[in-house]
Design a protein around this nucleic acid. Structure first.
Lengths: 208, 208
DNA sequence: GTGCAAAATTGCAATGAGTGAAATACGCGT
DNA sequence: ACGCGTATTTCACTCATTGCAATTTTGCAC
């Protein structure tokens, strides 16, 4: 399955992402044209679109897998585990993901985050993706606790948690805090959001 | 101040919004070109862009004012009012806004909501705007309780509440529920999110 | 190795969003 | 009626994105 064909495709894909990221940070997102990215990766502009549906997609090429992990956690929840504890594990695992970044260097990860935060178009796209994943998480959570939660409740719980974490992280980030404090902000936000969940059905006792 | 000049401008603006909405619902958002909208409103395509920065903006032309109301509520909070109670009032007032819709007919309001929910580009934009307003709300909340909350906490609280409401509403909407049940979902979500806030500094006693 | 079919790449043309600048029309105060 | 300043239009241009047909590359069988 990993024939030359596949390897070559992956190489091109990476080249495109790499080139795009480099140019975005060098000249800015709007200022960089697809033609330039393609040239940098040594393919035609037309080929760019056979790898990514749009300019934005270069930035979000791996968002799929990222939510997959969270969904898996919800799916294989430990029997008897309180909702609050499970959700905190999801948050934790998500934070770990951000710490890894195998595929691309830490610099590129940072650059990407920066772009997502500053370029309005990307910010909008990021929020949209995040939102979709939240809907998926809500469905998964509901399936994990089919007798204790209905869909609206799981949605409220997931939305509350992610919403709190996201906005707190953003507030901290825009405040210019170092990643240390951003992490701490996320932790506190999660705690606040989860506070109301202790007495939620399916709990037993609190967690966190 | 209300010379012919001003009146004419407002008339054109409305004509553009009206034409756009009509065409969007008739042929779909993507399928409608700016040229068509401009033609319908009897102006040049270039003029369209002197009124709205982009195609999307026609849909969100009044989003500014909508958040203004919520910010005002936070600003004039009643002394001694618990955080939870104040936030619930914000949610309530926001729901009322959706009920009114003075500027344009109920049909158009409904059509607009439908577009925002279904067209990905608009969905993304809506989320972005919502997110920005949340940051503003967080700042306002912090100023309303300067001694009891720091920025991260207010962000967590606001994000949690809005996140819960938003996702619950969405879950209910995509489930095909009638507006009756959507309203109920929002109410329940707000309650869940607020549950953890009762023992938040500045409260005193609970509210809901 | 050769040859062939599938997959990938490319060039080209076309559509539509969005922008900049110059030319023009028009309400407004005098 | 006259001139000023702002809308509006026109024209020309850049760029994202897509459809299509031609071309090249690769996987595989003989």
């Amino acid at each position: 399955m990993v024939g030359l064909r596949e390897r070559k495709k992956q190489r091109t894909r990476r080249a495109l992402v790499h080139a795009a990221l480099r140019l975005f940070n060098e000249k800015g997102y709007e200022e960089t044209t697809i033609a330039e990215i393609a040239a940098e990766a040594e393919v035609s502009t037309r080929t760019f679109f056979s790898y990514f549906a749009s300019k934005e997609d270069v930035i979000f090429h791996d968002s799929q897998e990222r939510t997959g992990g969270a969904l898996a956690l919800l799916h294989d929840r430990m029997p008897g585990e309180p909702v609050a504890a499970l959700l905190l594990r999801v948050v934790q695992s998500s934070l770990d993901w951000a710490g890894r970044e195998d595929n691309f260097g830490l610099e590129e990860a940072q650059a990407r985050l920066d772009l997502m935060m500053t370029v309005p178009a990307l910010q909008a796209r990021a929020l949209h993706l995040l939102f979709d994943s939240q809907l998926q998480l809500a469905r998964a959570l509901r399936e994990a606790y089919p007798d204790e939660l209905d869909l609206v409740e799981s949605a409220a719980v997931v939305g509350s948690l992610i919403g709190a974490v996201k906005l707190a992280a953003m507030a901290s980030l825009t405040g210019g805090d170092p990643s240390e404090q951003v992490w701490e902000a996320v932790r506190r936000a999660a705690e606040i959001a989860v506070r109301g969940l202790h007495d939620l059905p399916g709990s037993g006792r609190g967690a966190a």
